[in-house]
Amino acid sequence: MEDERETLAQIRGLVKHFPIMRGSIIKREVGQIRAVDGVSFDLYRGETLGLVGETGSGKTTVGRTMLRLYEATGGKVIFDGVDLMSLKGRELDQIRRRISMIFQDPLASLNPRMTIGSIVGEPLLVHKVGNKKQRRARVGQLLEQVGLNPHFVNRYPHEFSGGQQQRIGIARALALNPDLIICDEPISSLDVSIQAQIVNLLERLQNELGLTYLFIAHDLSMVRHISDRIAVMYLGKIVELADRDSIYSNPLHPYTQALMSAVPIPDPDLQDTRQRIILEGDVPSPANPPEGCNFHTRCPAVRLDHCPQAEPELRELRPGHWVACHYAEDYL
């Protein structure tokens, strides 16, 4: 099984630090926000990898750094055998056509002064695909593919509902036939009944077009539904990475356990019987993350003689199940 999967992208030791600047005329760096702090994972062709974490976990930064919307501080993103981080100019453009992105706030991600036709057609125009007529035909086809009436090409984004706006964003992401779509919380600003429509659409498109998704989210139940594998992030690091079933049936990291128990389940019977772990306190600031294991300040199973001093490695405890906790064996 493991061998049959073709690797599409390898992310190795990705680091992104944002400088904190002070001063008005002469600016100087007073610190760094360690948004992404050494993240490594593989993406297999045709899979959906769920990337979950809370505010400040760095999950959005991972996606944006992969596309070089932010310049990485360190690390590699090897896409189809080529390191994206070392490419320039035309070569970078060629590779970048194969990766696209869907955003959290669908309205904000669409230029309010452009018609949806020109929004969806923009990638084609930028990469000089086809002539005007061919591009127009392709836009119509894309709109139809995401369940929108192609006659609406001349309308503006604000004339559509939130779910439809997200469909427009998806159509734009599909324009250049990408291999990989980075979905940055594509459903979290939508209403429940609309979320399901969008998730179904994404799954249908994946089946039809063989897409690979990096699905960034904080909603664990939806991530479980859509993902094949799931990576959990905390303060810029991956703490656990495994197949969906093994991470849900047997989470090995205390943070993953707490996160999953915190997700409310819309079933009063299950809700009454399940055991809940309620974490104390807040996520520490990524500008000043704790030493050692960065989760030790909130960990219910912390061992103070070891965790605050030693940083845990991401280890493969079971085939395909990686975890960064000194004492993960306890939960096997």
């Binding site: 779910g163 399901a196 998730v199 139940s221 539904h225 849900y248």
Partner: peptide
């Protein structure tokens, strides 16, 4: 309720979305 993924169902099943808005 059908729009929500459930923990006790096979994750592969399609969500029964409410059409329209």
């Amino acid at each position: 309720l059908g729009s929500l993924p459930r923990l006790d169902e096979d994750p592969g099943t399609e969500l029964s979305a409410i059409p329209g808005f």
